[in-house]
């Protein structure tokens, strides 16, 4: 049976400009996998660990965060903070014997560029290869 992962992307206002300008259809034409859902936040530095964990609880197979380049964040250190939180979740996943690569941080330039869609494609390929998230096993 083919597995289509549920991938949740959390992007800041600046790095997700392409999603707004092109819309879902436009991004699809650029090659964005349809199973990637975007969650826009004002700054990735505002993302809490608990928000990302909740996405796993709600059934995400993979999660990624897109923030500004580490040294060029609009809010100075927002994307650096996000990267730290993503790292903390990677460690927690490893402690729970779940593949840490199910969550990833990307630092991308704002505006329109192929890397934005490439990040989604990379995660889609990675999570498809990994298979369904172990948290999704049927609870007794």
């Amino acid at each position: 049976m083919t597995f289509t992962p549920d991938i949740q992307a959390f992007c800041c206002h600046y790095t997700s400009q392409q999603t707004i300008a092109e819309g879902k259809e436009g991004l699809k034409e650029d090659g964005l996998p349809a199973n990637v859902t975007f969650n826009r936040v004002v700054c990735t530095g505002k993302l809490q660990v608990s928000t990302l964990l909740k996405a796993f609880e709600e059934g995400a197979d993979g999660i990624y965060v897109v923030g500004c380049p580490a040294d060029k964040c609009h809010n100075v250190k927002g994307s650096q903070r996000a990267a730290k939180r993503v790292d903390a979740i990677k460690k927690a996943l490893a402690e729970l014997a779940v593949e840490p690569e199910r969550i990833e941080m990307f630092h991308l330039e704002r505006g329109f560029h192929p890397e934005f869609v490439e990040a989604a494609q990379l995660m889609n390929k990675r999570i498809t290869d990994l298979g369904p998230c172990p948290f999704k096993g049927e609870a007794k």
Binding site: S50, V98, K136, A139
Partner: peptide, 21 residues
Amino acid sequence: EREVEILASLIRLGMLKQGKK
């Protein structure tokens, strides 16, 4: 408070991994 929220979530996930709720 923040760590409580995170740990509660991680415990739920850890139990889900074991197939328990």
